[in-house]
Every structure is written in structure tokens, then in C-alpha cells.
Design a protein around this nucleic acid. Structure first.
Length: 866
RNA sequence: GGGUGAUUAGCUCAGUUGGCUAGAGCAUCUCGUUUACACCGAGAGGGUCGGGGGUUCGAGUCCCUCAUCACCCACCA
């Protein structure tokens, strides 16, 4: 096959991926008799480019898919992209703004057209990049959240929820983003601490503090704690005449426990229209609510001369007015508070009361395992009852905590990009359905759905047959019942994703899926952490140097090196670090495999009968079986890092360092070829490209199959005695190398009559770089015994004293060890309490160490004499 | 305010029912060009497992407590 001296990944990876595609290697087969294994790929935003987070989830899921293929499963890894409503909308609006265009100037239709064009180009990019990672995804089943079929399902579910009374329309306070002109869910709000001014004003007989004077125009309720002694003289609902921003006004006192008497003066005024807490308080006492700030972030007519002014600009002027009126008491400068922002590229959140659509999470009307439950209850039950297992387990606690605080989910958004609500209005009538009722002028709701509403259907809506979902004569239940992929692959086996979207996505998928299809969406959830820089910093767009671009790494070092680096040291749910040194180490690992192949290439032999002859043969077969077994155990438990370590040590420490070296003496090429072949299969899930390259170049000539389509074979049995013999040889050779190094010897002769040594004479001579004779030739000798096999090392006079010193040091250590073991065995509580096998092990261990001690003592005696 | 995680060799981390003298990789030091590999091989040094206390025959592992760092949730007049 004639390989280059080093592995150049970029010369091969594209061709290998195309080879897999050409052979339909990723394609799932629901008709297969094999067991089925499926994963839904978390759909990346189609506007994005591949970042290191994608690279991580692609690697982990690809390992699981390829591993299960090797285990003999029919696998489905279903890929897709997400329309990412708000995020995409924000990107387009930003682009328009750069061109000096406001979206209202071009209108909804044109806006959507522009978005579609942009998204169309962008989608190709992310798919191409996904392929560069080696993803064994079934591209024939590629889905997109705005596909016709998926969109229909989204509407169907909305209609169904409405019919079941689980979706309602109501006036509630929502998180309004004036920049993107939409409301967003609680989970999308990001709080950032900032320092601001805290103003204290006189309000009738009270002093009240605020960070937002601009919201205060309509304030006419003062709230205090009923236990607050300062205000005992006033009664609940007592009214006061108050001089305020717009002159004299009537204010009412409310006494409520929710006020903290220790904060400031213990008195505050409320602004129900623009604060969640105030809104709830106002609801409790049926208080008036008045809007002060418009949806555009500008003051309304209640602000009189400030009407139309931007709130931030108006603030100092309003403070000045209050000061002029003699109402300003103090200003505290560095008051710390949290500022709510829209995490999806939007602006500063302004709470507003709006008529919106909500999903009721508390209504107990949903059938689940024969009981009527609320969404909240089902979300809790599936975890508690073990239908879904979250790995690592500690996230279950976080999940439950989130559910306990869950409020009704606001699903309507005012952006244009997304699934429009299937809601129609005519005069004061509302109709919810896929198409408007016959007759009359029904107008469709202009709002779109929260992007997570469609994502929450992902595991099953993507498995519905597109030919059925676009057939209007079928009901949703009929489509579900007739879709073969759905029957075969749902529930999916595992959801692998980042812990940061456990609420957005994981919980909501459980919510929608249990409700519509009466199944859990997945049986297990594996959560990974964040990939951070080498120094443990978050990679962020604002600091371009901190970002590791997976595509650059792939180009320079190969996708395999990147994949290995991402799983090395990875622990479930834990952040991991990635840097250049790690990537280079793993590139070197690939190169090691490459060079093993270079050595083996002209020795490959799959025609001769497989024979296990030497001690080394038995040993390598034993180690191979062990590595395979432990590798499978590790992957089954999602211990990716552990799995890599097993492969790493088998390849380097066992196969390359020992077996390959031995094979230069004892030529058993059929077994060498067998082990090499199994080695490629073993490594393949972790490093698919290089292993397939080598398979194609080396092993393909003997078979027509692709490596990706192999399955694990039954292990070959090896002899434990022979395997143990090679362990003795390893220990012996290592010890001789050590002594040679310690004594600075270039040449060394040893003599031994042990059959094991004589039988493996050539091998040991080569490995330890020594000469072996079977007759004693010298007076000065170091005796070495490993598991009852003894050899004598011939050394000259000058080295004796040198070695004696080393021996004395060794004696100290050995004596201590024997003493501590003795002490333990003399401890009666230990003998009585410890399990028998532990005590027996200790006894055996002691016997060995005593024997070793005696050898050292004998040596010292011998050298001291001479 | 509530919660979670981390703390083991210079660095990055394993150590999964408590049990052999606590392990890797990288880095460091020494030596080395032999049927693939210097993106290599051989050998070595380096740890009172964050501090304190407890349970136990036995603790890196379990419990309590403190400290530092990171993150999440809630509140914020």
C-alpha cells in the first residue's frame, strides 16, 4: 500500500466520507431483523457555523452510532436543522439595520423571503461541516423544523392542545423585548448585574426608592409590610393626597407580607404594568394597572411633556423634575441590581401586560399511564418512575427544581420567522384550526410560535412519513399509526445534548411527546458540559482568540485528532478543556497507528490458518479480548474518556511496544494480521477516518466490506499459562533494562537455565538488548527472580559497589513494606472484620514480598563478601 | 437567599458498591538511531489526595465542617 511516513488526514477524509455515502453506510433500515438503535441529532441553527460545542455532540453521538453498528444493531441517527426563530430573526434584522432598512418598511412577506434565501445558503454550510466531523447520520432522512410536514404537525399539536383546554389566550405580564419587538419566555431572559443609581423620593408621608423613576408616572399604591412598626398608624386601604409627577393624586396604602421591611424605608410604590412582582400584587388586591411605556420603549401620554421620549433619555429629566418639586431625597450611586436582557441577541427586557397564548402546565387532564395528570406531574413522573434516566444523575435535582417553579409557558411571539399560529379571528370570534372556517373574512393571527414549541416535537415528528404528513385526508393519529420509522425508532434510545438546554429542550420534549404520542421521547438523557479553553475560560465571540474553530483543527490535524481530544478527559455533565497540546498528542496517536500499519503492510496474511503459538501470541490475544470487553463496558456506561484510554494503552503499551517487537523475531503473521484487524475495528468508533483509510488500504484486498459495516466477532480463547509466561518475560525485560540504565551498561550478558528463558532466548535478547548464555561465566553476578524464574546478570568488579548502594536503598523500602503488611496481618480486628479474600490476598502479597526481601538480602551478602 | 460541581504530581485529569505500595497523558531529567514511527523508543524523578474533625480493622472514596474557584436558579423598591 506504500504509505507516507506520517498520516496526512486532509488527504483522505473527504474521500472516505464519500465512500461511506456511496455505499449507503449510514442508512437505517426499519425492515431489518436486527435490533434497532436510534438517536435524534439536536438540530443546529441553520444560520450558524460549526462551533466546538457542535463538534463535541457530533463526536459523542457518532461514537454511539458506530459502536452500536459494530454491535450488530440497525442504527438511525436522524439529522436536521432548526429554523431558530428568534436567533435567525435577530440575524436578519441586524443585516437589514446595517443596510439602513427597518423591517416594517419591507413588510412581512419580503422579510420572510429574504430570510429564506439567507437560510438556504447557510444550511448547506452547517451540513457540510457536520460531515467533516465524520457524522454517520442518515442524510436521506434529513429534516427541517419548517418542512411542510413538520409544520403541519406543529399546527395539529397546537389545535389539539387548544381543544383539550391546555392552550389558552390571556392577559399576562410577559418579557417584552422592544428591540426585536417580541416577548420571550422566562428561560430566554438573561440577568446581568450592573451598577446603577437608586433614587429615593418623597411620596406623601412616605419615602420610596426606585431605580426606574421613568415608570413611576401612574403609581398610586404604596405597599408596606403589615408588621412594620413605622407604619402601624396607617391602615390598610387608607388613602392619601400625594404631590407627584403630574401634580396632586390620590394614593392608597396596601399592607402585604411580601414587602421586606428591612429594605430601605420599607415602603414602595408599585407599577403593575411593568413589573412581574407588582403585577401579581395588583392581581391579588384587584388594583388598577396602567401602561406607562409603549412597546417601542418610549413613554406614553401619561408622561405628559415626556411623551414619546426614550426611557433612558427621559430618566435624568424626570429626576430633575422631581427634584425641582422638592421631592428628591437622595441618590445612591453604585446600587447593584440585575438587568434583564434577551439572550437571543435582543435588547433590554421591559415587562409588559399583553394578550398572549399560554400552555397551562397545571391542568390535570392529560392521560398518562391510566391517570389524569398535568404537564407538571407527567414531567416529574417520567423521571421518578424511571421511564427516563438522566446521566449524570445530579441533573435530576436541577430538573425537578425547575419544574417546581414552572409557570404557564407563553408560546406566542411577535416575530415573523417561524410557525404562524393556527388561530383565526373574525370580529370578536376566535377559531383555532389548520384552515379558517368557510365563509366570511377570517383573519389569521400574526404571531408565530416559540421556536421550542416545534423543537419539542422533534424526536417523533421527524420520524413521521413525509408522504403522510402532507396528506390532508389523514388525521394526526392516523399519520402516527402508519409511519414505519416512528414505529421502529421511537422512543429514541438516548438524547445526547448539553446541560444548558435541559429546560428549553429536554423538558419540553418530554412535555409534548408524552402528551401527543403517549411515549417518552427517549429512554436516557446523556448531558455533556461546556468545552472551554486550555486555561479553563469560556470561549466567547467577543474574544476571538479564545475560540478553537473545529474546521481549522480538522484541516490541520484531522477530524480524528479533534474527536479524540474532545473525549479525552471528558466526564459526564462536566466542563472540559481543549487546547493545542491535547490536539497534537492525539494527532500523534493517529500517527502511531499509521506507522504500525506501515510496518505491518507487507506482512498481512489472512489466508493462512490462525495459530496461537508463543507466549506472546497468547498474551496479545488475552489483552485484545480484555480491551474489547472493557471498551464495550465503558461505552455502554457513556464513559468515553475511559474507552479511549483502554484503546490508547492497548495500541501503544501492549500491541506496539511488545507484540510488534516480538513479531520481529517470532513471525506469526496470520495472528499479527488478525490482531491488527481487530485493532482497527476497536478504534473505529473513536477515530473513524484513519481506521477506514487503513482498512481500505490494507485489509480491503482480503475482503470487500467497509470497516464501518463490520460487527464484533467472538473472541478467540488463549492459554492463561502462556499468557502469564509472557507477563514474566515483560517483567524480566523491564527489570533488566532498569538495571542496565542504573548501572550505565551498554552490553550485558545473563545466564539462566530456566526453560522459559531458553525457550524465548531470541526474543528476550532482542527486547532487552542483552546476550543470554546457559552456563555461568563469572563470579560477580546479580540474581533476578520473577515468579520463580531466575536469571543471573554478569557484571564486572567496578560496578559491584555501585550496585550495592542501590540494593541498600531497595532494602529499606522493601523492609518497610514487609513490616506494614506484617502489622496489618497481626491486627486481630483486621483479620476478624475484613472479607476473607482480602485477607488472603494480603497473606499472599506478604509471602511474595518476603521472598523478594530475602533475594535482596542474599544479594547484599554476596556482594559484601566479594 | 437556595442549589450543584470542582479541589489528587508543575499542567490536564482517571480513580463507579471503602481493600494490594494512589494511576495516566503532557511537561521535566537521562540514555538511545535496532525491520514502522523523533508526530519515536527505553529508563527515571515528582503526590502529607484543599484544611480540620468523625465513622471504620481499613478513607482519595462515606458523614460533618470550613476555605477557595466555577456554574445554575430565585430575588432585587
Amino acid at each position: 500500500m506504500d504509505l507516507d511516513k506520517t498520516y496526512q488526514a486532509n488527504l483522505y477524509e473527504k474521500d472516505i466520507y464519500n465512500l461511506w455515502l456511496k455505499n449507503n453506510a449510514f442508512k437505517a433500515d426499519p425492515m431489518s431483523n436486527k435490533e434497532h438503535y436510534s438517536i435524534s441529532m439536536p438540530p443546529p441553527n441553520e444560520t450558524g457555523t460549526l462551533h466546538i460545542g457542535h463538534a463535541l455532540f457530533l463526536t459523542l453521538q457518532d461514537i454511539l452510532i458506530r459502536y452500536h453498528k459494530l454491535r450488530g444493531y440497525d442504527t438511525l441517527w436522524l439529522p436536521g436543522t432548526d429554523h431558530a426563530a428568534i436567533a435567525t430573526n435577530a440575524v436578519i434584522e441586524k443585516k437589514l439595520t446595517e443596510q439602513g432598512i427597518n423591517k416594517h418598511q419591507i413588510g412581512r412577506e419580503k422579510f420572510i423571503q429574504i430570510t429564506k434565501e439567507f437560510v438556504g445558503n447557510s444550511r448547506e454550510t452547517i451540513i457540510k461541516q457536520t460531515k467533516a466531523m465524520g457524522a454517520a447520520a442518515d442524510w436521506s432522512r434529513l429534516r427541517y423544523t419548517l418542512d411542510e410536514g413538520l409544520s403541519r404537525v406543529v399546527s395539529e399539536v397546537f389545535v389539539k392542545m387548544y381543544a383539550d383546554g391546555l392552550i389558552y389566550r390571556g392577559n399576562r405580564i410577559v418579557n417584552w423585548d422592544p428591540k426585536l419587538e417580541t416577548n420571550v419566555s422566562d428561560d430566554e431572559v438573561l440577568y446581568q448585574t450592573e451598577k446603577t443609581k437608586l433614587y429615593t423620593f418623597k411620596f406623601g408621608p412616605f419615602e420610596i426608592s426606585t431605580t426606574r423613576p421613568e415608570t413611576k408616572f401612574a403609581d398610586k399604591y404604596i405597599v408596606v409590610n403589615p408588621k412594620d412598626k413605622r407604619y402601624l398608624k396607617y391602615k390598610h386601604l387608607q388613602t392619601f393626597e400625594v404631590e407627584w409627577l403630574n401634580g396632586k393624586t390620590q394614593a392608597t396604602l396596601i399592607k402585604d407580607e411580601s414587602v421586606d421591611p428591612n429594605f430601605g424605608t420599607g415602603a414602595m410604590t408599585i407599577t403593575p404594568w411593568h413589573s412581574l412582582v407588582d403585577f401579581e400584587l395588583a392581581n391579588k388586591y384587584s388594583l388598577d394597572m396602567e401602561q406607562v411605556i409603549g412597546l417601542d420603549g418610549k413613554l406614553l401620554s401619561v408622561a405628559k411633556e415626556f411623551e414619546g421620549m426614550d426611557i433612558i433619555k427621559a430618566r435624568p429629566k424626570i429626576v430633575q423634575k422631581l427634584k425641582d418639586k422638592g421631592l428628591l431625597i437622595s441618590i445612591q450611586d453604585d446600587y447593584e441590581h440585575s438587568l434583564a436582557t434577551n439572550s437571543r441577541g435582543g435588547g433590554i427586557i421591559e415587562p409588559q401586560i399583553r394578550l398572549q397564548w399560554f400552555i397551562d402546565v397545571n391542568k390535570k387532564t392529560i392521560d398518562w399511564k391510566g391517570q389524569k395528570n398535568s404537564f407538571k406531574e407527567i414531567l416529574q413522573r417520567v423521571i421518578r418512575e424511571g421511564d427516563i434516566k438522566i446521566i449524570p444523575k445530579r441533573f435530576e435535582k436541577i430538573y425537578f427544581n425547575w419544574i417546581n417553579n414552572l409557570k404557564d409557558w407563553c408560546v406566542s411571539r411577535q416575530i415573523w420567522w417561524g410557525h404562524q399560529l393556527p388561530v383565526w379571528y373574525k370580529e370578536d370570534k376566535i377559531y383555532v384550526g389548520l384552515t379558517p372556517p368557510e365563509g366570511g373574512d377570517w383573519k389569521r393571527d400574526q404571531d408565530t410560535l416559540d421556536t421550542w414549541f416545534s423543537s419539542s416535537l422533534w424526536t417523533w415528528s421527524t420520524l413521521l412519513d413525509p408522504n403522510l404528513t402532507t396528506d390532508c385526508s389523514l388525521t394526526l393519529d392516523e399519520i402516527i399509526a402508519r409511519s414505519i420509522d416512528f414505529k421502529t425508532y421511537h422512543p429514541t434510545n438516548v438524547l445526547e445534548t448539553g446541560f444548558d438546554i435541559i429546560f428549553f429542550w429536554v423538558a419540553r420534549m418530554i412535555l409534548s411527546t408524552t402528551y401527543v404520542v403517549k411515549q417518552v421521547p427517549f429512554k436516557e438523557v446523556f448531558l455533556h458540559g461546556l468545552v472551554k479553553t486550555e486555561t479553563g475560560k469560556k470561549m466567547s465571540k467577543s474574544d476571538p482568540d479564545s475560540i478553537i474553530d473545529p474546521l481549522t483543527v480538522i484541516e490541520e490535524y484531522g477530524a480524528d485528532a479533534l474527536r479524540l481530544s474532545l473525549i479525552q478527559g471528558l466526564a459526564p455533565g462536566q466542563d472540559s478543556k481543549l487546547g493545542k497540546t491535547k490536539i497534537i498528542t492525539n494527532r500523534n496517536f493517529c500517527n502511531k497507528l499509521w506507522n504500525i500499519s506501515r510496518y505491518i503492510e507487507d506482512k498481512l496474511d489472512f489466508n493462512s490458518t490462525l495459530r496461537i503459538e508463543s507466549a506472546a501470541d497468547n498474551w496479545i490475544i488475552f489483552k485484545l479480548n480484555l480491551a474489547q470487553k472493557n471498551f464495550q463496558k465503558a461505552i455502554d456506561k457513556y464513559q468515553f474518556s475511559e474507552a479511549y484510554q483502554i484503546v490508547y494503552h492497548f495500541l501503544k503499551d501492549q500491541f506496539a511496544d511488545w507484540y510488534l517487537e516480538v513479531s520481529k523475531i517470532e513471525k506469526n503473521y496470520s495472528l499479527l494480521s488478525y490482531v491488527y484487524k481487530q485493532l482497527l475495528i476497536l478504534i473505529h468508533p473513536l477515530a473513524p477516518f484513519i481506521t477506514e483509510v487503513l482498512w481500505q488500504k490494507g485489509i480491503k484486498s482480503q475482503s470487500t466490506e467497509l470497516l464501518i459495516n463490520q460487527t464484533y466477532q467472538e473472541p478467540i480463547i488463549s492459554s492463561p499459562t502462556e499468557e502469564n509466561n509472557f507477563d514474566i518475560i515483560i517483567k524480566l525485560v523491564t527489570e533488566i533494562r532498569h538495571i542496565k540504565k542504573e548501572l550505565n551498561l551498554n552490553k550485558l550478558t545473563i545466564f539462566s537455565e530456566a526453560p522459559l528463558i531458553l525457550k524465548n532466548k531470541e526474543t528476550i535478547q532482542k527486547l532487552a538488548q542483552i546476550k543470554i548464555q546457559n552456563e555461568s561465566i563469572s563470579e560477580n553476578k546479580i540474581s533476578l527472580t520473577i515468579n520463580q524464574v531466575s536469571v543471573d546478570l554478569d557484571i564486572n568488579d567496578q560496578l559491584v559497589s555501585n550496585y550495592l548502594l542501590k540494593l541498600t536503598q531497595k532494602l529499606d523500602k522493601q523492609t518497610q513494606l514487609v513490616e506494614s503488611l506484617n502489622k496489618r496481618l497481626q491486627n486481630k480486628s483486621y483479620i476478624n472484620n475484613a472479607p476473607n479474600h482480602i485477607v488472603d490476598e494480603t497473606k499472599q502479597h506478604l509471602a511474595e514480598e518476603v521472598h523478594n526481601l530475602k533475594i535482596i538480602q542474599d544479594d547484599i551478602k554476596l556482594f559484601s563478601k566479594s
